[in-house]
């Protein structure tokens, strides 16, 4: 879709993040071309979730530069980054548990309402048109993740795998240019992981860029265009999944260790 010469969607340069005495991310640099799926793998504690938190703005980097589609991100709070088109899901699911499935997705349309201010108090034609538009789009997103029939259910009452999919639908409601997924397959059974893979493949087919932190190597090799292997907060390897399997450093530090 996009040639290798195209400007990268995301550029990270020399990112650092320290928590107390722990250097969670120490001097990490990488670029993400447009319409690319990057899988970030590495042992527990390698700094993968911290990296996603630095990208989405949950944490601020201690040092380093971060630019997304030509905008410098480092100083921006999380909600401003979301408006630029960065959406995310969470490793520990953070749905609005007491709201219905539909309300969770509708909350994701926050940046897209087109209602004159006075119509918030006196609902006029523009208000109702906006409501119809958002409900239609929410219905399509819920159909995409297979939760349309559960629209009225409280999010907290969904099965674990369904909650993971609902988080993706909620993130997609923001119409992201880059979707960050923090261990989307964690805790899922085989069928649920397959349901997830089908959706991620569809999103990839639409050209949505994604950064995926994941332990499930089968999912990674089937979805990812690029792999970033992290080790103690640093880059151990960056390249294609096929090249990763041949890389001596990766085999020694991670894949080999897992097989042993």
């Amino acid at each position: 879709m996009t040639g290798p010469g195209a400007a990268p969607l995301l550029t990270a340069e020399d990112l650092h993040k320290r928590f107390g005495g722990v250097q969670a991310v120490g001097g990490l640099s990488f670029t993400l071309p447009p319409a690319t799926v990057l899988a970030v793998i590495g042992p527990n504690g390698a700094g993968k979730s911290t990296l996603l938190n630095l990208l989405s703005g949950v944490h601020r980097a201690d040092a380093g530069r971060l630019s997304f589609a030509g905008t410098e991100l480092a100083a921006l709070p999380a909600h401003r980054r979301a408006r630029l088109g960065l959406a995310r899901t969470f490793q520990k699911i953070r749905l609005f548990r007491h709201l219905s499935v539909l309300e969770n997705v509708l909350a994701g349309f926050y940046t897209q309402h087109r209602i004159p201010t006075w119509q918030y108090l006196l609902h006029g034609p523009a208000f109702h048109a906006d409501r119809r538009r958002c409900r239609q789009a929410a219905a399509e997103l819920l159909a995409f993740v297979g939760l349309l029939a559960r629209a009225a259910t409280p999010a907290g009452a969904l099965a674990y795998g369904e909650q993971r999919l609902l988080e993706i639908a909620r993130a997609l409601a923001t119409q992201p240019r880059l979707l960050l997924l923090d261990e989307p397959a964690a805790g899922l059974n085989g069928a649920e992981t397959e349901a997830l893979r089908v959706r991620l493949t569809a999103l990839r087919g639409r050209g949505l860029a994604m950064i995926l932190v994941e332990h499930d190597m089968d999912l990674v090799t089937r979805i990812a265009d690029q792999v970033l292997v992290m080790h103690y907060g640093q880059k151990l390897f960056a390249g294609t999944p096929a090249a990763m399997r041949e890389d001596a450093g990766v085999i020694a530090a991670y894949l080999g260790g897992e097989l042993a």
Partner: peptide, 23 residues
């Protein structure tokens, strides 16, 4: 109006709300 959903998001989970663009 959408303000209701926004306040509910704020009440339920601020980090999640911020990830949707809510200040």
């Amino acid at each position: 109006s959408p303000v209701g959903a926004t306040l509910a998001a704020l009440r339920e989970d601020e980090i999640s709300a911020a990830s949707l663009g809510i200040d």
